[in-house]
Design a protein around this nucleic acid. Structure first.
Lengths: 202, 202
DNA sequence: TGTCGTATACGCGTATACATATTTAAGCGG
DNA sequence: CCGCTTAAATATGTATACGCGTATACGACA
């Protein structure tokens, strides 16, 4: 496992929460490497907008304000709905089967540690037929930024059943080629995620 | 001027075109520094999607396919129109004055080296009242990726007068609060940019 | 007692040096 | 003459070392 993945994981699982100062020296010692690869990893994470680097003063895990979270969720709505619309129009039988499979898979992973990854796997599978790798990577980045703040709050479980129901209905619209319906469901799905996050993080 | 800015400038002005291999050793020697800051700069540029790093094999300036350019321009349309719509609704008299000023300024810079920067200054000024810094930075990144391929082709001048006319009409709709009209203009403006770029780059 | 100045320590930025992987070219064989 | 193997050269990845800035803590002074 690459160094950058280890550090990212420690942030996303809540081990290093928002605002945590990440010392190059400490990280180097902890992972048994020199500071150079640590610097590379931190800069890569800065590129993902997971940490921010204050020149000469080190790196820290990002802290998002309510406004910034609003912007991120608005962007997600804009970009993910566009992806879903394109994907719904282009998805073939194989894509439909993949979506059904990921729906089952994510249902099993719900409420378990690392459900974020499973949720993203599900959504990404839906978006994949759109053929928009860059848009997909931007969305992934935005989602990851949210996870930084969602980590440690596994207590979103109360909403889990509703989320799974959303997913089911989304797949139904997806396989039926009902793009408008699918986007409508996704829209409210993302808004619900925003409300759930802000209710626990603010 | 920071090292990363120097290297970025050499790419954006066409000095290092798409596909150019960027040697750490050469860049270090050329700028009179060691390879460590060069590595940092290259990774920062990779984060901006201007260069791609092939592990163990060095860095090269990105080369975008027609599909990737299509995706970028679709994303720009989606994100910039959303920004303009929000900004039009929120812009006050001061913002209107700023827009008028930038219109004049970008008109003077047209057809001159570095007109990309002036064009972006103009558009950014329009978008600023939307209060969406992250969305703005994503758009800037997408635009910069395009400039990598547009650099060296100053010959887009044939379209310059049309572009300036687009800008004028856009500002007019902007100050009148006509969001739909402004977005419609911007939409065709971006599509025209895409056609101009693909006609010279492909 | 509070505040400012100084000294010490800690951490980042960078240069140098070494290890490893890739590329290239030369040499050998078919 | 072409292709494969091998070895030297070159470039990247990483470790170590040093210079510099910043932060903190202690002490002097108001």
């Amino acid at each position: 496992m690459a160094l950058v993945d280890q550090i990212r994981a420690s942030i996303l699982n809540g081990e290093s929460g928002p605002g945590t100062v990440l010392s190059q020296t400490d990280l180097a010692a902890a992972h048994g490497v020199s500071r150079i690869p640590v610097r590379d990893a931190l800069q890569a994470l800065a590129a993902e907008k997971i940490v921010e680097i204050l020149p000469g003063k080190g790196a820290r895990v990002i802290t998002l304000s309510a406004d910034e979270l609003d912007e991120i969720f608005d962007l997600r709505t804009l970009l993910e709905c566009d992806l879903l619309r394109r994907a719904t129009a282009l998805a073939d039988a194989k894509a439909h089967a993949e979506a059904e499979y990921m729906l089952q898979k994510s249902s099993l992973e719900a409420e378990r540690p690392g459900w974020h990854a499973g949720d993203w796997d599900f959504h990404r599978t839906l978006y994949l037929p759109a053929g928009r790798p860059r848009q997909l990577s931007i969305v992934e980045e935005l989602r990851t930024s949210c996870v930084v703040h969602a980590a440690g709050y596994a207590g979103l479980a109360s909403e889990t059943q509703q989320w799974l129901e959303d997913h089911r209905r989304m797949v139904q619209a997806y396989v039926n080629g009902a793009a408008d319906e699918a986007c409508k469901l996704l829209h409210s799905h993302i808004i619900a995620a925003r409300n759930a996050l802000t209710s626990v993080a603010m």
